[in-house]
Amino acid sequence: MGRRGRKRRLELETKYWRLLQSGVGTFEACRIVGMGRKTGYRWRAGNGGVHPARLAEDVRSGRYLSLLERQRIATLRRQGLTIRAIASQLGRAPSTVSRELRRDVRPHDQGVYDSDLAHARARRPRGGRLLADAGPRGVAQAQLEED
């Protein structure tokens, strides 16, 4: 069962974590962001009491999962929450969470989802089709030379 109340907002949470990293205390950070201190304590508990290694990336589209969201998935999964419960807490579709877990839990990982490894796999630069296959590359090069 998901939490009742407002959905989490990544912008507020990111600002909260930045304040904590700069040395501001939890109570003061909560006051600056404009939320109750219990919310701040809940966010810290959700991440195991430690701030995430990297904050939500501003440059990435909201279409893709951020490192912060992947860390939440890992934490909530360890706590035994269902995929639907995790999705409702993140404000994402259950299919997104399911796909992420299916894609990034490998047999050699012993069924444990590693958020940092999953994020690194997701950001892996992929080569283009023309780099991998010499046939289409030759055709494309010939067409470029014609022009």
Rank of each mutant, 00 (worst) to 15 (best):
A56N: 13
C30A: 15
D116T: 08
R123I: 05
W17F: 14
K7W: 08
V139Y: 09
V112L: 12
G2M: 02
Y16Q: 06
A45P: 07
A56V: 10
L144M: 13
G25I: 13
R123E: 12
G40V: 15
P52D: 09
A29T: 13
A53K: 13
A53N: 12
R123V: 02
I83E: 07
G135Y: 14
R129P: 00
G62L: 08
Y113P: 01
R103W: 01
D58C: 00
A56P: 07
R77Y: 10
A122N: 01
D133Q: 09
Q79L: 04
D58V: 09
R121T: 05
R106Q: 11
S95M: 08
R103D: 10
L20T: 06
Y41A: 01
E145W: 11
G25E: 11
T96F: 07
L81F: 06
R44S: 06
R124D: 08
Q79F: 08
R44P: 02
S66A: 06
S61T: 13
S115L: 05
V105D: 04
P52A: 02
T96N: 07
P125Q: 11
R103M: 05
E13F: 03
L12T: 03
G91Q: 05
E57A: 03
L12Q: 10
G128E: 14
A74G: 06
P125K: 09
V24T: 10
G128L: 12
V59A: 01
R129W: 15
R63E: 04
R92G: 01
V33F: 01
A132I: 14
E100C: 09
V139A: 11
K7V: 03
A74R: 09
M35E: 12
D114Q: 07
P125G: 05
R99D: 14
L19G: 00
L101S: 08
S88K: 11
G128F: 10
I32L: 11
R8A: 06
R18T: 04
G46S: 09
T96C: 12
Y64A: 06
Y113M: 02
P125E: 12
F27I: 15
Y41W: 13
A45C: 04
F27Y: 14
E100A: 08
L101Q: 08
V112C: 07
V97E: 07
R92F: 06
A45M: 13
L19A: 03
L55I: 10
E57R: 06
P125V: 13
T14D: 11
R99F: 03
R137L: 15
L117N: 02
F27G: 01
E28F: 00
L65P: 00
S98Y: 13
L67V: 03
S66P: 01
R18Y: 07
